[in-house]
Amino acid sequence: MTTDIVTVTRGPSPLILSMPHPGTGLPPEVHAALNETGRAVPDTDWHMCELYAFAERFQPTIVEAGLSRYVIDLNRDPSGASLYPGQATTELVPTTTFDGEPIWTTPPDEAEIARRREAYFQPYHDALATEIARARAAHGWCLLWDCHSIKSEIPRLFPGTLPTLNLGTNSGRSCAPAVETAAIAAMADHDLTQIANGRFKGGWITRHYGRPHENVHAIQMEIALSAYLSEEAPPWRFDATRARPLQGALESVIAAALAAAMVQTVGLG
């Protein structure tokens, strides 16, 4: 398990892939405080880099977290405010799995959470903000694509089975309307279950960095793990054959969003 906080793989294009939850790393003090369930880090966004390997053609910058979301969730409001008031969710530092199972032997107190914000949350966001500013300075615009995945059935969080593709734009506020329209249209061309701004409208990353009036367009894509894993259970194996249609869909949606964002930027010029 890596304990790197963040790894940046810099590319020359205006596309940034944010990967806040693929990490399984646990600093020693966090590992010691977790119970057996927590140490298994079941709510990881498994194999993000492998899933998005197709994106090499876009020459993106990739900002990837190395630590588990159980250390601190990089896609939650650092103030602790809920992104989905009135709905079940997990906290800035989760107290349970998505299924509601306790994960701590010694839960972190407020002082420990504050320490983790400084030590582990802030470095990721410093790196992400730097890359967004760099891409925008180089191109005049940026497309931030926030990469996520989750089990397709979690009764505590949503009823029934989650669609394969869950596109979120904070209900149209995190990117220009033309970018959202292009992405949704491209998504509809593929025979995969899908929804825009359903249960997952975009987390803190999408909401915080998406500033279409400044030519920073942010889209979150939440994917059902069933679309690219052999099974949604340990050892969480990547299934290349199963993933192929999903990768084709993601490639076309990203391409459409990039094209629309470029035109939108020219239009604002």
Rank of each mutant, 00 (worst) to 15 (best):
D109K: 03
Y124M: 12
Y120G: 04
V179D: 00
W145Y: 14
H148V: 05
G160I: 05
K201D: 15
A135H: 11
P102G: 09
R207W: 03
L143Q: 03
A188P: 00
R199S: 11
Q194L: 06
R199I: 10
H139S: 13
C175F: 03
T89E: 15
G160A: 04
T130L: 12
R173C: 09
A183F: 12
D189P: 06
H148R: 09
A183P: 05
S152C: 06
G168N: 11
V179Y: 07
L83Q: 10
L143N: 01
A119K: 08
L83H: 08
M187L: 14
P177T: 13
T105W: 00
S152L: 07
I195M: 13
Q87K: 15
E101C: 07
P85Q: 01
M187I: 11
T97V: 05
H148Y: 08
G100S: 09
E91M: 00
S171G: 06
D146T: 14
P94V: 02
L165F: 06
T193E: 11
P123F: 09
A133I: 00
L144V: 00
D126K: 13
E153K: 08
L192G: 14
H190K: 01
A129V: 02
P177W: 10
R207E: 12
A114V: 01
T164D: 12
P123L: 08
I154D: 07
M187R: 09
H190D: 00
C147G: 06
D191N: 15
L192A: 14
I184A: 15
H190N: 01
E101K: 15
L92V: 05
P108I: 10
A183N: 07
V179T: 11
R136H: 04
T193Y: 03
K151L: 09
M187D: 05
I195K: 12
L162A: 14
R117Q: 12
A127Q: 09
